[in-house]
């Protein structure tokens, strides 16, 4: 079965293997085919969620708030889908790379902010269709809850939960269970799937905010 992909994401042939791709300026040494560039699921958790066939509800031209933008690898693909893309990153070093990704894309708005303090960017970020969350910090469910305010009832949370960020020593399954339980206070979970073989001990989550 071939799950449907969001508008703007296509399957293309790269050196004999089929992979998902978007159209845009290459950013991280990814394979290209004409205007298309490969969205490497090993480098991107959202890419892994798509490659694994999770129904993300992503569409072209959606407004997106991206938490944990890091150096902008995944952000660059999200921005290729065309909508305004608010990219929040807390650490200055990766933010330097994020700036150069944003240089090639007029729809990225980079913000050096702490995703645990949404009040420090709510004066800039408008309500969005999608919140993508990839923050390697303890309290990932809390970050999702705090940023619930940017989504209306139809919005989607696409989160990659990293077990080792919550507790390095605990069993990942137990960590996921605890995070999912906390998420359910604020979101209805539509789909969860572990992201291996692309990312070990990561859980992909698709959720819709509770009213």
């Amino acid at each position: 079965m071939t799950p449907s992909l969001p508008g703007g994401v296509e399957r293309r042939d790269f050196d004999g293997t089929t992979a998902i791709a978007t159209q845009g300026h290459p950013e991280y040494g990814e394979a290209t085919d004409g205007q298309y560039r490969r969205w490497n699921p090993h480098r991107s958790k959202l890419g892994a969620m798509l490659a694994l066939g999770m129904d993300t509800g992503l569409e072209a031209d959606q407004k997106t708030l991206y938490l944990g933008a890091a150096a902008g690898t995944t952000v660059s693909h999200v921005a290729d889908l065309g909508g305004p893309t608010y990219a929040v990153e807390f650490a200055p070093r990766p933010a330097r790379d994020l700036l150069s990704v944003a240089d090639h894309r007029p729809n990225i708005f980079p913000l050096l902010k702490d995703a645990r303090k949404p009040e420090s960017y709510a004066h800039v970020v408008e309500p969005v269709d999608v919140v993508v969350q990839d923050v390697a910090t303890r309290g990932q469910a809390r970050v999702a809850a705090l940023n619930r305010r940017f989504l209306d009832g139809e919005g989607r949370l696409l989160a990659a939960v990293k077990a080792r960020s919550e507790d390095v020593t605990a069993d990942p399954e137990a960590v996921f269970e605890a995070v999912v339980a906390e998420l359910r206070d604020h979101y209805e979970l539509l789909d969860t799937e572990q992201l291996d073989p692309y990312h070990e001990d990561h859980l992909g989550v698709v959720a819709r905010p509770l009213e």
């Binding site: 009040e119 420090s120 709510a122 004066h123 800039v124 970020v125 408008e126 309500p127 969005v128 305010r149």
Partner: peptide, 11 residues
Amino acid sequence: ASGRADAPEDW
């Protein structure tokens, strides 16, 4: 850099 708001609006 320095502004704040509790909730987003249709800016």
